[in-house]
């Protein structure tokens, strides 16, 4: 007779097997430059630096350099083949930003929505400088009065 415990174990094992991802993935080989480096080390280092600062769209907290998602591979192929064709990293970044918005880039750019991030610290510094000047100026005046 099969014990209840055995049935329990069978159930546990079944659940373990069911955790295998259900969603299908494509079976195509990766794009030519998804995992292959460029022959010219200077161009490859340019491409790598750029890939580390571009966001993977499928796995949103990784750069496309860090991600194994097929789409990240296809984006790396775009970056490497465009670098090879003579495009500059900043041109490629703007090409992607024109398609996906600022979101795709980890390197913040000044735009209609991000300017407070850049202006904020400058304004704070100016306020601090103003306060300091007034306080120090006052103290000097006090000292002058006392003398």
């Amino acid at each position: 007779m099969i014990s209840q415990r055995k049935i329990g174990w069978f159930f546990v094992m079944l659940m373990a097997v069911l955790t295998v991802p259900l969603s299908a993935q494509d079976s195509l080989p990766p794009a030519p430059y998804a995992y292959n480096q460029l022959d010219d080390p200077r161009l490859e280092s340019e491409a790598t630096a750029l890939m580390h600062s571009l966001r993977c769209l499928k796995c949103q907290s990784q750069s496309i350099a860090d991600s194994d998602a097929p789409m990240a591979g296809d984006m790396r192929h775009q970056v490497r083949s465009r670098i090879l064709a003579g495009e500059s990293p900043s041109e490629i970044r703007s090409w992607l930003i024109a398609r996906y918005g600022d979101y795709v880039s980890y390197e913040p750019e000044v735009s209609a929505t991000t300017w407070p991030l850049f202006a904020g610290p400058i304004v704070l510094l100016l306020i601090v400088a103003g306060v300091l000047l007034r306080r120090l100026g006052k103290r000097r005046c006090d000292a002058g009065d006392a003398a």
Binding site: A31, K58, M75, R99
Partner: peptide, 14 residues
Amino acid sequence: DKISEVQLAIGSSG
């Protein structure tokens, strides 16, 4: 589109 080329060119992310 074997390398998602057109997909990337029109800003599609999936």
